[in-house]
Simulated scan of single mutants.
Amino acid sequence: MLTPRLSVLDLVPVRSGQSSGDAVAASVALAQVADRLGFTRYWFAEHHNMPAVASTTPPVLIAATAARTERIRVGSGGVMLPNHAPLVVAEQFAALEALAPERIDLGIGRAPGSDPVITQLLRISGPTADVDRFPDHVADILSLLSPDGATLRLTSGREYPIQATPAATSVPELWLLGSSDYSARLAAELGLPYVFANHFSGEGLERALELYRSEYRPSERHPTPQTILTLNAVVSDTADEAEQLALPQLRSMARLRLNRPMRPLETVDEALAAPRDSDADEVIARMRPRWVIADADAAASAVRTLAERHGVDEVMIAPVAGARADEPADAASGRALTLELLAARLAA
Score class of each variant (00 low, 15 high):
Val89Ala: 08
Val171Leu: 02
Arg110Lys: 05
Pro116Ile: 04
Ala348Glu: 13
Leu176Gln: 04
Pro248Ala: 10
Gly322Pro: 11
Ala208Lys: 03
Val235Gln: 10
Arg324Val: 08
Gly204Ile: 07
His47Gly: 06
Ala242Cys: 07
Arg290Trp: 15
Arg110Asp: 01
Glu203Ser: 15
Leu87Tyr: 15
Pro264Arg: 11
Thr230Gln: 09
Asp140Ala: 02
Trp175Ser: 02
Val74Asn: 04
Ala274Thr: 09
Ile317Phe: 02
Ala325Gly: 03
Ala85Asn: 01
Ala273Thr: 07
Val33Gln: 15
Arg217Ala: 13
Ala45Arg: 03
Arg123Phe: 09
Ser156Tyr: 06
Gly38Ile: 15
Ser170Trp: 02
Val234Tyr: 12
Leu337Asn: 06
Thr338Asn: 05
Arg335Glu: 03
Ala321Cys: 10
Leu258Met: 13
Met262Trp: 13
Gly75Asp: 02
Thr57Asp: 00
Glu70Leu: 05
Val89Thr: 11
Val138Cys: 00
Met80Phe: 09
Gln249Leu: 06
Arg324Asp: 05
Tyr212Ser: 05
Glu203Asn: 14
Arg263Val: 07
Val12Trp: 08
Arg324Ala: 11
Val117Gly: 05
Ile141Thr: 00
Phe93Ala: 10
Leu265Gly: 08
Ala208Gly: 08
Glu210Cys: 00
Glu241Cys: 04
Leu152Phe: 13
Arg257Gly: 02
Val24Tyr: 12
Asp279Pro: 11
Pro101Arg: 08
Tyr194Asn: 04
Glu327Leu: 02
Glu203Trp: 15
Met1Val: 14
Thr151Pro: 08
Leu144Thr: 02
Arg5Glu: 03
Phe93Gly: 02
Ser55Pro: 00
Tyr160His: 14
Arg185Trp: 04
Asp140His: 00
His222Met: 04
Leu245Phe: 06
Ala294Arg: 15
Leu87Ser: 08
